[in-house]
Amino acid sequence: MPVSGVLFDLDDTLFDHRGAADRGVRSWLGHLGLDGMLEDHVERWFALEAFHHERFQRREISHVEQRRARIRAFLPGWDLADDTLADDTFAGYLACYRAAWSAFTDAAAALEQALGAGLRVGILTNGDQAIQETKVQRTGLASFGVPVFASSSLPAAKPDPRAFHEVCARLGVAPQDCVMVGDSLRHDVRGASGAGLTAVLVDRAGRYDRRRAEVAGVTRIRSLAELRWAS
């Protein structure tokens, strides 16, 4: 790809969020004695995460408020009306989640390759700036010196074009000369394309193998090791 810049998504592109969250919630549920019907509990946890995190991205609620909404919806029989109790209960999951943090094995090499090709590289992620930066630091990816741009510090979240345009401007790259690499068809691929960037979909688990119509015309890879850059 003859481009001058590349943006990487963080969660489930460079950083194994789904894996860490899955391991974390299972461990946490075991501590709570809620390991019966475990698969149902885990799927409900992820459904609530997706719903309330999207509300946070739309600026309807704060990051802390989306956590409280999730934990109250997940444990409706618990008396979590008090914010401190809700926060303390969520902290139990959070500790298990953080203990499972890791970058994908191809993440470091992907950043190194892009930087070695002379590209201007950034991480564009939906989320809280401090939390996303901590993930990058804790997984060793901060050693590459790649700036992290989280939606909480941007005019809007992906897939809003303003998120892409703002980050391109900060990197000094024209949108048409930049590639977005991410795992979300809506936020990363459709959002980037709508903002004038080229997009690459990272489909690690082959989610779209049976839904080819949804990704017709989209460049799709199974690993970041498949990326190749040309000047």
Rank of each mutant, 00 (worst) to 15 (best):
S4R: 12
S4D: 11
V6C: 06
F8N: 13
F8Q: 09
F8V: 09
D11M: 10
D11L: 11
L14A: 07
F15S: 03
D16A: 15
R18S: 12
R18L: 12
G19M: 10
G19K: 09
A20C: 05
D22R: 15
R26M: 08
S27R: 11
S27L: 13
W28V: 01
W28Y: 15
L29P: 07
H31T: 13
H31E: 15
G33Q: 06
D35Y: 02
L38R: 02
L38E: 05
L38M: 13
E49K: 02
E49A: 05
F51E: 13
H52V: 05
H52C: 04
H53I: 00
F56Q: 04
R59S: 05
I61P: 06
S62I: 10
E65R: 08
R68I: 13
R68L: 15
I71L: 04
I71R: 03
A73R: 05
F74L: 10
P76W: 05
P76R: 04
W78A: 14
A81Q: 14
A81T: 13
A86K: 03
A86H: 08
D87K: 01
D88V: 00
Y93I: 04
A95F: 01
Y97P: 00
Y97N: 12
R98Y: 03
S102F: 04
S102L: 03
A107Y: 07
A114S: 15
A117I: 09
G118A: 04
R120H: 08
V121I: 07
L124I: 12
N126R: 06
G127H: 13
G127E: 13
D128Y: 04
Q129L: 07
E133N: 01
E133G: 04
E133W: 02
K135M: 02
K135R: 14
R138I: 01
T139M: 06
F144T: 07
F144I: 11
F144G: 03
V146N: 07
V148S: 05
F149G: 05
S152V: 06
K158A: 15
K158Y: 08
R162I: 01
H165A: 09
P175W: 11
P175Q: 02
P175E: 10
D177E: 14
C178Y: 02
V179D: 03
V179Q: 02
V179R: 02
G182M: 03
S184C: 08
S184R: 13
R186T: 09
H187M: 15
D188Q: 12
D188C: 11
V189M: 10
G191C: 13
G194E: 06
G196W: 02
T198S: 15
A199N: 09
V202K: 05
D203L: 07
A205L: 10
Y208W: 14
R211F: 00
G217D: 11
V218C: 10
V218H: 11
V218Q: 10
V218E: 14
R220A: 04
R220H: 03
I221W: 00
R222N: 07
W229C: 01
